[in-house]
Amino acid sequence: MSDSKTEQTETTEQTSTRSVLDSLIESGVHEMNRERFGLLLSGLSAGLDIGFGPLLMGVILTLSPGGFGDLTTELLVASVYSVGFMLVILGRSELFTEHTTLAVIPVLDGQASFRQLLRLWGLVYVGNIVGGVLFTLLAVQLMPGLGVVSPEAFEAIARKLVSHDLRWLLVAGVFAGWLMGLLAWLVAAAQETVSRLLIILIVTGTIGILHLPHSIAGNVEVLFGLFVSPAISPADYLVFLVLATVGNVLGGGVFVALLKYGHVVRGAD
């Protein structure tokens, strides 16, 4: 009787895991088949929306008596960093780092081509980056004048990402992509909005408190510094963006998409 219950539990768990995989494949294929301009606009919307997280980070740093390194400030900064991701993910806009996992799985399953993957990545990535640039331009022009955030806070946020060596940027980018891939998987598995909010807060808050380079949110963070401080150069920005993007793709594509797909498919054999 005990063995029968164990087998039934294992079957239920496998079915649930397979359902998550099937949901991700269906979502990925759907996005790949979307019209080009629609994908670009959705990516633009995500690039704009995600900027609210870095902006709130600047507000916290401006208002807090402590800076980076102070435990309370770090926890608050990591918490508000999650806001942009909540707006994007629950609003169902297209985020490049989600698709480093979502869009890879249909290719692994043979339901989409590598060319379709590159098309989706390219459109979403360009939309995300352009949206981030537009948000940053608005924020650095309007927010300091309102007195809610200082240029020094914008510079501090940027320096936290560009002051490390190149190996750190790449390896930390892998960890950020890994976490974002797990986020895509966990959000697909969650059944309720409250659960999804909690998952987003925990996972992206982890990225925030570790100051890992997320190519899309980090795009806004480093642009803040580039636009307000001579200490951040265009070269700093470009190096960050390239290494963070490559690391994010490797983290989401290898450590989540490839491994999760492999263990679910082999477990079903």
Rank of each mutant, 00 (worst) to 15 (best):
E31H: 14
I157M: 08
G218D: 03
A46C: 06
G147E: 07
L250Y: 06
L223H: 01
L241H: 05
V29S: 13
D165M: 00
I50D: 02
D22S: 12
G253S: 15
T17F: 13
W178S: 06
E7D: 15
I89C: 01
R18F: 11
G43P: 13
A268Q: 14
L259R: 12
I209C: 02
F175I: 14
S82F: 06
V107Y: 12
V246F: 09
I232R: 03
S64C: 11
F85W: 05
A217C: 04
H211S: 10
A217F: 04
N128D: 14
S64V: 10
R34I: 08
E26M: 07
G110A: 13
T101R: 09
F240R: 05
L197A: 11
T62N: 07
G262Y: 05
T206L: 11
Y125W: 14
V203L: 10
A190T: 10
T6Y: 15
L71K: 05
L123P: 07
L166A: 12
L118D: 06
K5N: 09
L75E: 00
F154M: 07
L238N: 00
D165V: 03
K260M: 10
A172M: 01
G145P: 08
E7N: 11
V140Q: 07
V256E: 09
T72Y: 09
L166H: 12
H30Q: 15
V80L: 07
G181V: 09
L76M: 15
L186P: 03
I209V: 13
E31Y: 11
L117C: 08
G47N: 08
V187D: 09
L71C: 03
A188D: 10
V83R: 00
S113R: 13
Y81F: 15
V222K: 05
L243A: 07
S42N: 14
G267H: 10
F114A: 15
F135N: 02
M57L: 06
G267L: 08
N33D: 12
L179Y: 07
G262K: 08
R92L: 06
G218S: 01
R92W: 04
V162E: 04
Q14T: 09
E152P: 00
F114P: 08
L95T: 06
G131D: 04
G51N: 02
N219D: 06
G208P: 03
G28P: 13
R18C: 05
N219L: 04
A112M: 11
F68M: 08
L48I: 13
M143Y: 10
V140K: 04
A158W: 01
E152I: 04
L95A: 06
W168L: 01
L87I: 04
E74F: 05
G253A: 14
V83G: 00
S215K: 03
T193Y: 03
I50P: 07
G51R: 02
R159L: 15
V246R: 02
R196M: 09
A268I: 09
L71E: 06
M180F: 09
L39P: 09
T206C: 04
R167T: 13
